[in-house]
Design a protein around this nucleic acid. Structure first.
Lengths: 351, 351
DNA sequence: CTGAAAGCGCTAACAA
DNA sequence: TTGTTAGCGCTTTCAG
């Protein structure tokens, strides 16, 4: 059977509390006793019960991490960052996949609460929700990862996606593009509005009029981004460059382009978003916006632990991580005189 | 403060045990009482304490999942599969990254034991280890994922990598290749020996003599696989096809090849292993061996839960998942007369 | 059908 | 410096 404090106590002829204190390195226990205790603890392979301790101290040294889907590289990296930090701080992390559905998110929150987690890290599915209220009511510290806005009641860490959108668009503008298409990602990923904002800002700054026909919504998968890109290309007044909103969307765009014998970046420039592993491997290698998702994980976990250490002492902070442009080969200046080009093939009238 | 059974009991003028039973849907509690209890439970937002319950029942409805690194697509999928299955069975999963180091693996096991997990899922770093002994001694059910061999004392699920290696090699042989290089992955990933075995078997079956100079070891990262591939190519009697042992190794190979102006599959055929997302996106799209890692996760979790339900009733099973060949564009019949080709460039003496 | 009481393994206030 | 005692919130005999 499992060995408990009691077993140690009996074995040593000490009281349970003395043993407990010795193990906790309480200053008022003698060196000698401590030595004996730790020794027989090791010998009998004593393992403290986190359960029992938690029941008493109300701390389980466990946190919950709710991501949208670990299967996406971003969330895997975040998860890894969190776990690494947790391991250092001696916490365990329970992982949950919300699939962007409020229902699952809610279930998991309830679940984590029953588990008595000390805090939770959450990539929220949307704006302020019941879930947040629950956490607040129960006074469980939580930090929002990649939340939609900064008016959350708790700490948060997110990437400055508006900046990212700006960066991408601005780069294209700098290259000389005027007609820049935006393939906006699914709204179930909270950052897409920010991206869009950045896009608009950059356009405004450059004095380029916004054309709504150049913006189109696409899901994250290949086929729907393929179709969205196709639609964009066959519209009247097609773009000379496409900002893809995500790297997989960019790949869908590549496909749509190659289908029409349009070359990247010769005929059309493409820029991605996220810098997932496939980006550098596409041909041409994808120019994209990169941000350190592992760091997001680390940062938010660190933040949470700080709150757990000192619930009062540290206010709520909204940390933001800056994305950066990674220039590879998929964007170039527009073809001369391509302004009115219809983009229906590579063999135009002038050759 | 937190609402407990006691609160409910007081509120209803019942005893704690009655309330407990009502909530557990004990048959000897009257309909009416149950109704009242569940109602006020909902009303007061009662949430049972898994901690307290676990202390009593010795079941925490929590399992540990130790993977090498969630950041690798394979493990992310496995994790997802496990978590999905756990969610259904109402378990929680604590995630751990061992980084293939016995030390971390050991730490996590101890850690999980202190947590009182009901079982653990483990992608082991090597053959039978102390860790397994610990789990056995403590009578914690565990199932091995992608373990090296089948003589494990517990259940296991793994991919038949020998088959995978065979499949890949055999395909190349079928195409007419005789000189097939093998870029064997790092030994910290347990399946590489199996891969190698499959390679040898396929060669034997085809009556092709094995040449050790055609086998070389490479780490998983780009640079080392790049160098390994280069070495292979500049050796005496270079291969006409390369079996890359992993998809990223295959990518490294692509690089080494393009550096020497060797085309895939025109000059050299390449076949990968694992079918991670980048595989279909490389150019040319990578022919590779695929296996369903999400399913591995599901299967192993399911197995574990079955054991937990009925510790005696179900013996140890060794489940194996079959990989399959995914033909894309990176392998083709060898160039005619390429048998003795040196592969130093594309402009050979004969044009 | 319901209640009283013991106890899971631990910590912490209070004594000695 | 060490021991005694009282729970943490729950399940589960054993009584009624």
């Amino acid at each position: 059977m499992k060995v408990t404090l009691r077993d140690l106590a009996e074995r040593l002829g000490l009281s349970i509390s003395t043993v407990s204190r010795a193990l906790a390195d309480d200053p008022r226990i003698s060196r000698e006793t401590k030595r004996q205790v730790t020794e027989t603890a090791k010998q009998l392979r004593y393992r403290p019960s986190v359960l029992a301790r938690g029941l008493k101290t109300r701390r389980t040294m466990t946190i919950g991490l709710i991501v949208i889907d670990v299967t996406y590289p971003v969330y895997a990296s975040i998860a890894r960052g969190v776990e690494d930090e947790a391991h250092i701080a001696k916490y365990n992390v329970i992982i949950c996949n919300s699939d962007s559905t409020p229902g699952k998110e809610y279930q998991y929150i309830e679940n984590l609460l029953e588990r008595g987690v000390d805090g939770v890290l959450l990539t929220p599915v949307g704006g302020p929700t019941v879930q947040w209220d629950i956490l607040e009511r129960e006074a469980i510290p939580f930090v929002l990862i990649e939340g939609d806005d900064d008016d959350s009641p708790s700490s948060s860490v997110r990437v400055d996606h508006a900046r990212g959108g700006h960066l991408a668009t601005d780069y294209l503008v700098g290259l000389g593009h005027q007609d820049i298409g935006l393939l906006c990602g699914p709204t179930s990923f909270p950052w897409n509005r920010q991206l869009y904002d950045g896009y608009r800002q950059a356009l405004d700054k450059a004095g380029i009029p916004f054309r709504s026909s150049l913006v189109i919504q696409a899901d994250l998968d290949l086929t729907s981004s393929y179709y969205a890109a196709s639609e964009l290309l066959s519209s009247a007044g097609p773009p000379t460059a496409i900002f893809a909103g995500s790297d997989v969307t960019a790949y869908g765009t590549y496909r749509a382009l190659s289908e029409r014998n349009l070359s990247v970046p010769g005929d059309i420039s493409v820029i991605g978003y996220g810098d997932i592993p496939i980006a550098r491997v596409l041909s041409p290698p994808l120019t994209t916006i990169s941000y350190d998702s592992y760091q997001i994980g680390k940062t938010s976990a660190r933040r949470l632990f700080k709150i757990l250490e000192d619930p009062e002492g540290c206010g709520t902070a909204h940390l933001v991580i800056q994305p950066e442009l990674v220039v590879r080969k998929s964007a170039a200046p527009p073809r001369k005189g391509s302004k009115g080009q219809r983009g229906k093939g590579q063999d135009g009238p002038e050759k």
